[in-house]
Design a protein around this nucleic acid. Sequence first.
DNA 1: GTAGTTGCAAATGCTTTGCAGCCAG
DNA 2: CTGGCTGCAAAGCATTTGCAACTAC
Lengths: 147, 147
Amino acid sequence: MYEELRSELKKRKRRITAQREMILKIFLESKGRHLGVEEVCRELLDRNIRISKATVYRAVELLVDLGFLRRLNFGDGIYRYEIVDRSEVESHQHVICRVCGKIKEINSEMVKKIVSEISEKTGYIIENHDLKFYGLCPDCKRRLSGG
Amino acid sequence: MYEELRSELKKRKRRITAQREMILKIFLESKGRHLGVEEVCRELLDRNIRISKATVYRAVELLVDLGFLRRLNFGDGIYRYEIVDRSEVESHQHVICRVCGKIKEINSEMVKKIVSEISEKTGYIIENHDLKFYGLCPDCKRRLSGG
DNA sequence: GTAGTTGCAAATGCTTTGCAGCCAG
DNA sequence: CTGGCTGCAAAGCATTTGCAACTAC
């Protein structure tokens, strides 16, 4: 993945820097998590690496541009980012527990059908989407009803 | 709707004020639009009504709590609000043009199927959802491809 | 050498909050 | 009356930006 990053950076005449590789590394080692800038900085500090917050902001923006990260928005006022798995479908959907905040990724075949249905009905060309389902996860469900 | 607002406020021992009714009125008269606090203030000014921004912030939060408004997040750093139509299904979905920003509401039967599929697969109880589809609206599609 | 990067601090922009005065009940 | 409400200004926060020093190439 670092090789791809280097080649993408070269392609766009942007520089290959230790900071950028390090930040990508954090995301590669945190697969499945959804990190905000603050958390990225914390992860870096845990590894005794100090990169200024401004640089992290600029790096994640760049990594989103280059297609390595995806920006997420869970409506809490903080932008979070996750690594883009090239093998995965171009869309993404999350199920979020309203009690514990746990986030689960899902992948429904039915999503494709919805997309084409919407495309037909509205005349829009749908390029990507962001689906969030809110509810109770099994654990919280048990905890709340059980006791 | 104002009657419902008054009774909800009484029920919760909150006061009935001209500002709160006025702000609800703005939303009732702007059905289908997604107003941010700034825009609500502008609408008020257009009607020669001055309500402080802080009050608007507090009022929309209250109206969301009471179930009259729904908070939306289109990822541009601004919370927008829309009136909740009691007759409508408890869920909502938007199609957003990435060029002109136009937002269209949709209502797909297929959404219900997805919800139950997800519920089965994940064990979550899905209470509501927030679906956003991004792409090109017919107008921008024409403008971009046509010339 | 030079243009892209970084770190810092200051600025920005949306939202929240403390507080004194006001007003609905 | 009195506790909730409003308006104002100040504070909070996440994010962005200006700039001088630095560094990849």
